[in-house]
Every structure is written in structure tokens, then in C-alpha cells.
């Protein structure tokens, strides 16, 4: 296995095995099999940079590396894409988070 990426939306994370030479469209097709949403209704955003990933380009082209997190957003009824929505566990549960936390 060459690499994997994590596609996140709301409280769900999809671990996707992939290869750096695969295109974003390939990734969306994998997601389509899992979430029953056509590729045209999916948008992937590299969380680190906020960059919207283009279907025709490969993962390597767009610097999507092993273990990268991409946000999955879906097309809404009004034809627009929804905003990035990733819920983090420490939004309401914070036993161990050390980075950036305040000591209250």
C-alpha cells in the first residue's frame, strides 16, 4: 500500500487507500462507492492549505501526502457546495489535548 488519506465530513472520517499517481477524480469515485454521492456533487479541500482539489490533477501534483486530511463537502439542494464541516472530538470533550489548549 502506497499511502492513505483521511477524508472528513462532520463526525465521520473515511480512510482511503490510494497512490500518489491517482487523480482526485479517482478518490471521489472511491468515496462515491462509500457514500452514494456522485462525484460531481463532491468537493475535496486540503485542510492544511484550504486549497480546493481539482479532479484532473493527481494527489502528488497537489501535494496531498500520506496521512493527509481532506475535507469532504457535498452539493446542497441550491446547487452550491456546503461549507467545510469537520467536528473535532475536543469541541466537547477534552481530556488529553495538549496543543494550544489553555490550562483552565
Amino acid at each position: 500500500m502506497a499511502m492513505y488519506i483521511r477524508a472528513k465530513r462532520s463526525k465521520t472520517t473515511y480512510f482511503l487507500q490510494c497512490d500518489p499517481t491517482e487523480t482526485i477524480l479517482d478518490i471521489k469515485q472511491k468515496l462515491q462507492a462509500l457514500i452514494d454521492q456522485p462525484v460531481n456533487d463532491q468537493r475535496l479541500i486540503l485542510v492544511e492549505t484550504g486549497e480546493v482539489l481539482e479532479d484532473s490533477k493527481t494527489l502528488a501534483d497537489q501535494k496531498v501526502e500520506n496521512d493527509a486530511v481532506v475535507a469532504l463537502t457535498l452539493r446542497k439542494d441550491d446547487n452550491e457546495f456546503e461549507d467545510v464541516n469537520i467536528v473535532k472530538p475536543n469541541d466537547f470533550y477534552q481530556p488529553h489535548e495538549a496543543d494550544g489548549g489553555s490550562n483552565c
Partner: peptide
């Protein structure tokens, strides 16, 4: 032997945490 090819829902498993977060893995 893990492949980077096609993905099928039947080949995945959803693991759910204490707080109800879901992780879909092969």
C-alpha cells in the same frame, strides 16, 4: 495485500468511538 484500486462498501468497516464519531476503514 492491500490495493489502491476500486473500493467497495462491503470491504469496509465502520468503527464508532465513545463520542459517536465514525471511522470508515478497510
Amino acid at each position: 495485500v492491500a490495493s489502491a484500486g476500486k473500493m467497495r462498501k462491503e470491504d469496509t468497516l465502520k468503527l464508532i468511538s465513545a463520542e459517536g464519531f465514525e471511522f470508515v476503514v478497510d
